[in-house]
Simulated assay, not measured.
Amino acid sequence: MDTPTSKKLDIIIPAFRGHSQSFLLVLDGISEENALKRIEGRTNHIIWMAGNFLDMRYALGNVLGLNEEFEYKDFFFQGKALDESFTYPSLQQLKDEFHKISPLVYQKLLAATDEELEKAFPMGMNIDFFPENILNFVGMCIGREDYLCGQIGLMRRILGYEGMKYDFDKNLNY
């Protein structure tokens, strides 16, 4: 396993890599048609969930100093509500974006220093026990990715797919 510069990220590095695996595995086999289905008009569709996952990766990269911009940001930025009048990108386009941004963010996580992680990063939460800094933003992004993979996993089952397999790709190094 890669060793991060900051020991504060020892738990984040395996989580990030695990989420990379989960993201691809939970989307495995889902058709483009089913990726746009909603349940009783009340749920987000898988495309929106996958796009929001990527918006998190891009946000994390930007906070860590990357200047990459998510091509489909206008659909997903900061959890923007699903809009059925939009023509969303395909699942394949989102997977391509995933492979573009994920290795870059991973390298930034590995290189982040304690000083960088402790820098203030206002999120407007105003919660006593939650310092608004880059480290806690990283943690929030990881938590959101977990949540979204779980949501997509539930949608898999509702749409009649088998549950996600855990056949991790040992060659995926981000």
Rank of each mutant, 00 (worst) to 15 (best):
Q107T: 09
F121L: 13
K108P: 13
L64N: 04
E71Q: 14
C141K: 15
D114A: 01
G153T: 07
I46K: 09
R38E: 14
F129N: 15
L110D: 04
N34H: 10
Q78C: 02
L54V: 01
Y58V: 06
L91Q: 14
S102D: 08
E118Q: 15
D96E: 07
Q93Y: 03
N52D: 15
Q92R: 12
V63D: 10
A35Q: 06
Q107F: 08
M49Q: 15
G150W: 02
K95G: 01
Q78S: 11
G139T: 10
G51R: 11
I47C: 07
Y147L: 15
Y88W: 08
A35I: 05
L82G: 06
G51L: 03
P122N: 01
K108M: 11
M125P: 10
L64H: 07
N44T: 01
M155K: 10
I142L: 13
A81R: 15
Y106V: 01
K95Q: 14
P89Q: 03
A81L: 14
M123W: 02
V138G: 05
F121S: 10
N67Y: 13
F98M: 03
F137E: 09
F53E: 04
S85C: 02
P122K: 08
H45F: 06
A120W: 06
D83S: 07
L60R: 09
F86M: 03
R38G: 08
F77G: 01
V105H: 10
A81C: 09
F130L: 11
K100R: 15
E116Q: 15
V138F: 04
L94T: 03
D55K: 00
K73D: 14
I152R: 06
L110E: 03
D128F: 08
I134M: 12
Y72Q: 07
I47N: 04
F53Y: 14
F98Q: 05
N34Q: 11
M140C: 03
N126R: 14
G41H: 04
D146V: 12
L94N: 07
T87P: 00
A59P: 01
L104P: 12
M49A: 14
D55F: 01
G139P: 15
L109P: 09
D96P: 00
M49H: 15
R144S: 15
Q78D: 12
F137A: 07
G153C: 04
P131E: 03
G65T: 03
L109W: 04
D83T: 04
G51Y: 07
Y147H: 12
E40R: 12
Y106A: 05
R42C: 10
C149Y: 13
G51H: 03
G153L: 00
G124Y: 08
E118A: 11
Y106R: 06
E116Y: 08
E84Q: 11
I39D: 07
T87Y: 09
N62G: 11
K100D: 11
D146N: 14
R38A: 09
L36C: 13
L148T: 06
E132F: 01
G65A: 05
S90G: 09
F121Y: 15
T87H: 13
N44D: 09
L94S: 02
I101T: 08
G61E: 08
L135V: 00
G41F: 04
M56Y: 14
L110T: 00
I134D: 11
G79V: 03
D74L: 09
Y58T: 04
Y58R: 06
L60Q: 13
Y106K: 05
I134L: 13
P131I: 05
N133I: 02
D114P: 00
E69G: 02
I127L: 10
G79L: 04
N52P: 14
T43Y: 00
Y147T: 12
D96V: 02
G51T: 01
